[in-house]
Design a protein around this nucleic acid. Structure first.
Lengths: 108, 108
DNA sequence: CCCACTACTCTGTGGTACTGTGTACCGGTA
DNA sequence: TACCGGTACACAGTACCACAGAGTAGTGGG
């Protein structure tokens, strides 16, 4: 699949929120999970900038824990604001996909 | 619905391609059509930049015609490259929506 | 002691939608 | 005539986001 970066703008952050929301986890693991899910070209740097943004915007709670297999991990969990943002994200996603599907059906 | 701009990145151009593909039309009308479809906050300036980009990338054929109700209109139609690009857009859209739906179903 | 793997950080870049403003053509109306 | 609103296009500047690329550490194996 060729370049998806433009289309991922705005949605990737929501995906990260969803992943964090389902389980307290850390940057490296989130990147792996996204890759597994089919977002093959997403790299660590991208995820970390998103995580920093989430932290700056007060949507997550961060806990540092030693790892055993490398440097300490920063675990992220959603707080109330984060859960609210996640709900907003899905609402927007629903809205946009419904409009685009309508546009798509409109042809012929 | 609050701000959708980030989520529209990459998709709005595809929507414009689809609209042009279904019927030869012009900037002002495309903006109205998008507004009707539910993309309420999309304004002329945005559409014109997209149209200029499509023209620059050689995806459309442009014809200027007098209007009768205002200044002349620039009508846009897809050429072969444009139709190909539109097909690519829908393929990408399909791909991304399927991955995100998978992520969404994954919770619980 | 080097190297691979894990894990996090930071700076800079390019692309995209949007903002705001300006220009221009036309018809109606007072 | 003078004004106004709707139509139609254009363009400079801004903000935001994913990504590239490089760097820093910690651990364990050969």
């Amino acid at each position: 699949m060729d370049d998806l970066t433009e289309m991922l703008k705005g949605t990737l952050e929501g995906c990260v929120l969803e992943i964090i929301g389902s389980e307290e986890t850390y940057g490296y693991a989130i990147t792996r999970r996204l890759n597994e899910l089919g977002f093959a070209d997403v790299v660590e740097g991208t995820v970390y900038t998103i995580l920093l943004r989430l932290e700056r915007n007060g949507l997550v709670q961060v806990t540092k824990r030693p790892s055993g297999v490398g440097p300490p991990r920063k675990f992220y969990a959603l707080n109330d604001a984060g859960r609210k943002e996640l709900a907003t994200f899905w609402a927007k996603w629903e809205y946009i996909t419904s409009r685009i599907d309508k546009l798509k059906e409109g042809r012929r």
